[in-house]
Design a protein around this nucleic acid. Structure first.
Length: 275
DNA sequence: CCGGACGCCTGTCGGC
DNA sequence: TGCCGACAGGCGTCCG
């Protein structure tokens, strides 16, 4: 199950995996076998991208940005999306919904069984697109720190876990890494965000950065899977300390890890280490 | 503005 | 063994 969830590190790994194969390539055409993703992929998108050269690839939150000469493709992998670079003649398998056919005989192929992913066309500047405009800072950017979380959390009664998963506050923190970062920082996920002092937010910001960085570093070992036909592109075993470990001993103190729902999401935490 | 609930979708898993 | 309901999740949207 976990392998099906692209969080920020998986998106970053996907970016690094496909980037060498797409940089400076020209998109001959878009071939869609299924347009019903999170939002319908508009047919007008096909003509918008055809013939354009890929000038850059970037990530913003969990969005992959393929910058072309006249605009950008915004791609979200949703909960089950994955990308591979294959010979364009490779027969598509189940759930292989979209191909970007390149000018070197290959294609970028999107597989997404649950179809929670999405694909959008954006006129420049891509940062002004409605999906990106209101996003908070990148967690791995130098501009993100504990003071940012502290300042925005004053007066907020929502749980700190919901707070750090709010993309307006901080971009790209999903359910898994929210639990992991809070455990490393020793903060109880249910604690109201407005009732946490600055030093603890500094610990939390550092934990967010370190857990994401470690996961990205681990993802580097799987980069070659992006060009393997039967590979499992970009996904890798995570070193998780609490997520999915309900009832198992906390790796810090041995107390049983607890699972509760916050909002509609499963949360995992150690009731002894996290206050 | 804020916080919480909802719904999209399908593979997997537990229970009977 | 087979079936079927519950569950998982990102995130835009809606509602109070």
């Amino acid at each position: 199950m976990l392998r099906d969830m692209p969080e920020l590190p998986e998106v970053e790994t996907s970016l690094r995996g496909i980037a060498p194969h797409l940089a400076n390539r020209r998109i001959l055409k878009l071939a869609a076998r299924e347009r019903r993703l999170r939002w319908p992929v508009p047919t007008t998108l096909d003509a918008a991208v055809a013939g354009q050269r890929v000038t850059a690839l970037r990530r913003r939150a969990k969005y992959l940005l393929l910058e072309l000469e006249q605009g950008s493709l915004i791609l979200h992998l949703g909960m089950s999306g994955s990308l591979r670079v294959l010979p364009a003649s490779t027969p598509p398998g189940p759930h292989d919904h979209i191909d970007l056919v390149l000018d070197d005989g290959h294609c970028l192929r999107l597989r997404d069984p649950r179809r929670f992913g999405s694909l959008h066309w954006a006129q420049p500047p891509v940062e002004s697109h409605p999906l990106l405009r209101h996003l908070g800072p990148e967690p791995l950017s130098p501009g993100f720190n504990g003071a940012h979380l502290y300042r925005l959390s004053r007066g907020r009664r929502a749980s700190v876990k919901a707070f750090i998963m709010d993309s307006h506050i901080l971009a790209g923190i999903g359910n898994i890494y929210a639990s992991e970062a809070l455990h490393r920082a020793g903060i109880h996920p249910h604690r109201p965000a407005g009732r946490i002092a600055l030093p603890r937010y500094e610990r939390l910001a550092a934990a967010i950065k370190s857990v994401l960085s470690a996961a990205i570093a681990e993802g580097g070992t799987s980069l070659r899977n992006f060009v393997q036909e039967d590979g499992n592109p970009g996904y890798f075993t995570r070193a998780l300390r609490v997520y999915g470990r309900a009832g198992l001993p906390c790796l810090g103190c041995g107390a049983p890890v607890r699972q509760r729902r916050i909002g509609q999401r499963s949360s995992f935490y150690c009731p002894r280490c996290q206050r």
